[in-house]
Every structure is written in structure tokens, then in C-alpha cells.
Amino acid sequence: HNLTITQGKLFFHYNPKLCLSEIHKMEEVSGTKGRQERNDIALKTNGDQASCENELLKFSYIRTSFDKILLRWEPYWPPDFRDLLGFMLFYKEAPYQNVTEFDGQDACGSNSWTVVDIDPPLRSNDPKSQNHPGWLMRGLKPWTQYAIFVKTLVTFSDERRTYGAKSDIIYVQTDATNPSVPLDPISVSNSSSQIILKWKPPSDPNGNITHYLVFWERQAEDSELFELDYCLKGLKLPSRTWSPPFESEDSQKHNQSEYEDSAGECCSCPKTDSQILKELEESSFRKTFEDYLHNVVFVPRKTSSGTGAEDPRPSRKRRSLGDVGNVTVAVPTVAAFPNTSSTSVPTSPEEHRPFEKVVNKESLVISGLRHFTGYRIELQACNQDTPEERCSVAAYVSARTMPEAKADDIVGPVTHEIFENNVVHLMWQEPKEPNGLIVLYEVSYRRYGDEELHLCVSRKHFALERGCRLRGLSPGNYSVRIRATSLAGNGSWTEPTYFYVTDYLDVPSNIA
């Protein structure tokens, strides 16, 4: 807008934040220059609390790290170098490059900038070799853009010569660093050979998330399962459950009422301010606690030095998902009996873990797994792929695949051998790939016309006998059925096997 004052003059007093240069501009645009008398524009009460600059400061050096910015700028000295009290560095987070010096300023003089007072450097006698002032900004957020400017702080001049310097606002972004852990990993099994893994992005990506790394490792069953005799009275049979499938998407929606109208769909109840505040506090606490764990609990591995020492970490090797089922080394339970199943799973520490690289999504279907087997899954978020990966501390989750139908069934015939004193040795093959492992066998036998009897055969007993022995049988026709019990439950009964026990007292003698 054009402003013209045809008559009258300007009068400025007691404006401590208004620089004289701005008042002189007002004289020019209003056409009143030359009308004012000496005392109409006070030299001592206008701009006496402001830094009124008329020179431009330029930054000469900028260096960044993930949490620091090192700045240096060209030296500046007023005509009387004693008038320079120091520099004021202003900075704040700036997602967009549209910041002005006066953003967030209120009537009390406060604003949204963080201000650092910096002492002037030592003055050199040689004007050509003056030290460049600077400042190291610490405690910054990774991968965050900051708006920065600097200006001088000078003393009051009796001659009211307006001098000083100020830089333009520059924008500097800190470097990326390792992201925080992925949030809320959930693993479920939808079949006997697959596990579905879902997660949420890290709360602090500290860069642009480029991919996720998912490692999985087959877990050995508890050692007590191999040692305890679950045929003993009072000892509860062990059981394991597989990871249940995901709930429906509708039930997972946030901010939804727990109660549904019987007449149909209901609208979600909005969260109160107290609920939102509580969630923010919980989120802040979780982030602080995660940072504490990362800094205190997890110790970084030592990389190899120039002395030739090897990095103890196993090298990563990509495998196809079809090879995942046989990740671990199978060892027989008892070496003397080769027909026992290889369900003991000690994992070799030198073995390469299978892994998958996930790009542009937060889910993965891990296939080719062994049925009813526990897996430990390790999830890392990465925001750099080359020249070397920059990934987060791992988040861990466990899951067990679903049982395989008929995996616990005894394959092959049940054979028998009759000894003296009416002892019958029953023999059968253990299931080759049971659900988890076989903890015991149930032997059901009966003599024709009598009630059915049951015998429990422990895992250890089966390994020693290759089956079991029935003792003290009365003469007669017998039928026997056997079924295995694994961590997933009972298998199917075998087809009945028949044998006849004679009275050993009636056996004919070869003595003449």
C-alpha cells in the first residue's frame, strides 16, 4: 500500500525493539523526510534493546553428524571492536523451508527459537588472519532439518551509529543413524509349514526405512522333555500350542467401542483428552525405555581390526524358502538304536541362519518350516543398504507352526516275539517326523474274553527296548493296539495285532 503524509511529521519514542533503520525507511515511504526535528525521533529510546544489523554474515563451514552440527561463519568486528559482546545463534526444527525470524513471537518477546549466546573469538592483530567464530550444536535429532541463523550482539553506541551483522536463515539436516526397533511384532501360524509375521514401523526411523531383515531359527525343545518319565503317576503330560491366527481386521481397528449394538453396526467412541494424553505418555515412556535398553543392555560386537582377528559373527547367506525346513542338525536320541526319531534339535552355532529381506511392506510369510516346531524370529529395521547396512537392534518374537495331521501315527506293522515265561516283546517304529517329539506310547492289549488293559511306555523305555515287553501273560489269544502321544496330543491307534500265548508248562520236552 502507498502511504503519503502531505502535512505533519513523524514522532517515535520509547520503541526499544524498533531499529532506527526501520524508522528511516518509514520517513522515505511516507514522504516526511526532512520535516522531523532532532528530538522527534529519539536516538536513545528507539532500538536500544534490539540488534540492528546492516551487514550480512556468511557461514564459512558446515559439518553434520547424526546428532551434531558444527558451524563456522566469517569474522565480524565493528569499528570499535570492544562493542562486540558476542553472537546469538538461533535454531529450531523446520520440516519445511518457510521459516521466518519472527515465527511464534508474542507480545512478551518470546519466540519459538532456541538461542545460544556465543563469546567472540580472540581478536588477531592481523586483519587478514582473524579467527572464524563458530559453535557445535549438540543433542539434535537424527535425520531432522533445522533452520539456523546467527547475528551479532553489540553494545549501545553513544554516537548512535547503527552497526551489526546478521546471516540469512539456512537449512541444515542432520545425518541418518540406526533406527529404533520395529514396533509390535506379531507372529502367527496359518499352516503346519508357515508363519505369518506382521509389525509396525519404528517410532524413530532416523532416516528413510529402506528394508527390513527377518531372521528365523528353529528352537530346540526343553531338555526336561527328553529326561522326564511322563508315565509316572502324578506327572502331567506336557503340551505345546501353536500360535493362533490373526483376529479379523475389524476387531483390530483402534479407537473402536468394545460393545456392539445388537441391531447392527455401531460407531466408534472418540477417545477423551485424558485417554489420548495417557497414550502419549505411555508411548514416550516406551521410547525412553527402549533407548535405555539399547544403550545399557546391548553391547556392540567388536569388529575385526587390522591384526587379522576374525569377526566372530557368522556370515549372512541367503537361502531359498524351500530350504528352511531342514535348518537344524538332527541327532538321534540314543545312538545305539537307529530307529528312534531325530527330534532332539541342538543347533550348531556355526550354522548360517536363513533370512529374508523385506522391502516396502511390514509383513512376511515364512514358508518351508517344520510342522509343530518353535521358531525364534528376529526382526531388524534398516535405513541404508549400501555401502553397508545400517540397521536397528533386533526385536524378537516366537511362534510355533501348526501340527501336521497323521504325523504322530505309527507307520509300519507292530511285530512281536514270544519268549519263555510268557513274555512277549512288542516292537514298532517311532514316527519319523512327529509333531514336536514323542513323549510316550500307549499300549492297549486284551486277552479274548477279558477286559482291555493299558500300559504306558516312556520315551526312554522305548529307546532301550525298541518297544516294550509284556510279562506274566496268561495263555490265550491276544490283540494289541499302540498309539503315540506327542507334544500336540495323541496320534491314531494302530491296526490290531494278534498273537497267541501258550502255557509254557505244557511245552513238550526233548528229553527222552
Rank of each mutant, 00 (worst) to 15 (best):
L505W: 09
L228H: 05
N208C: 14
T241C: 14
W242V: 08
V397H: 15
L235D: 03
E356K: 13
E281K: 05
A399V: 11
F355R: 06
S223W: 12
D250P: 11
Q252M: 06
T333S: 04
P434F: 05
G472R: 08
V345T: 10
R390Y: 09
G436V: 13
G306E: 08
E388M: 10
F226D: 09
Y504G: 09
S239H: 15
V327A: 11
Y441M: 02
V501F: 07
E420W: 09
Y212P: 00
L369H: 08
L379H: 03
G449E: 15
S243Q: 08
L470I: 14
Y396G: 05
K406Q: 12
G207W: 00
R301V: 03
D261K: 10
Y396L: 13
R301G: 07
S348W: 08
T288D: 05
V424K: 03
D323S: 07
Q275D: 04
S315F: 13
A399D: 00
T272H: 06
A395K: 04
V358M: 15
N422Y: 11
L437T: 01
R316T: 11
T307H: 01
V443R: 05
G476V: 02
N208V: 15
N326F: 14
E351P: 11
T485A: 03
P270A: 08
F355L: 11
A463I: 10
P312F: 08
P244S: 15
M427E: 02
L437M: 07
C231E: 04
S268C: 07
S342N: 12
S344L: 10
V507N: 15
S284H: 07
S458C: 12
E258R: 06
Q256A: 15
C391H: 01
E378A: 07
P314Y: 14
R313P: 14
S274K: 11
L277A: 12
V359E: 13
V414F: 04
N255P: 11
N421H: 05
E389N: 14
D261N: 12
M402A: 15
R318L: 13
S268M: 12
V443T: 03
E282Y: 04
E495M: 03
A395D: 09
N326P: 13
R370A: 12
T328K: 08
Y448I: 13
Q380G: 06
L364G: 09
V480C: 15
S341Q: 10
P434A: 05
S344K: 12
S248T: 06
S251A: 10
Q275Y: 04
E404G: 12
I377M: 07
G476M: 01
S344M: 12
T303S: 08
P238R: 02
S341P: 09
L277M: 12
S509R: 08
D222G: 09
I366G: 00
Y498L: 09
S304Q: 10
M402G: 07
L232W: 04
L213V: 08
N421E: 14
R318C: 07
S304Y: 07
C391A: 00
R376P: 00
Y504I: 11
N360T: 12
N383A: 03
K302E: 08
C456P: 08
S344T: 11
S320L: 12
A335G: 09
A463P: 05
F289W: 06
R400S: 08
E290R: 04
N421Q: 05
V393M: 12
S203A: 04
G467L: 06
S262K: 05
S268L: 10
P205E: 11
H454S: 04
L369V: 09
N339V: 11
V365S: 11
I482D: 00
R286N: 03
E247Q: 11
V393I: 15
K236P: 10
L453G: 05
V296W: 05
S367R: 09
Q252D: 14
E282C: 14
E258D: 10
T386R: 12
V424G: 03
L440V: 15
P387N: 15
L225P: 03
F226K: 11
K236T: 03
S268G: 15
S479K: 05
Q256S: 09
E282P: 05
S305T: 05
E420S: 03
L426M: 08
S223V: 12
A309R: 11
V329K: 10
P346V: 14
V424N: 00
M402C: 12
S315K: 13
H454T: 10
R318I: 03
H352N: 13
K406D: 10
R353M: 13
P349L: 11
D503T: 05
E265D: 14
N477T: 09
S509W: 13
W242L: 04
R376E: 01
A463R: 12
D408H: 01
S284K: 06
K460F: 06
S268P: 13
S315R: 11
R390V: 11
R483P: 00
R218F: 02
F337S: 08
Q252I: 11
V507Y: 06
W428Y: 05
Y396K: 01
T497W: 11
S458D: 02
T241D: 15
E356G: 13
S344A: 12
Y448M: 15
T241A: 09
E249S: 06
V329S: 08
P508K: 14
H352Q: 09
G476A: 03
S284D: 15
E224G: 15
Q252N: 07
L280E: 15
H416F: 11
A394M: 08
S398R: 15
A381D: 01
C266K: 11
P270I: 04
T328S: 13
L277C: 03
K271E: 02
S392A: 03
K432W: 10
I209Q: 13
V334S: 10
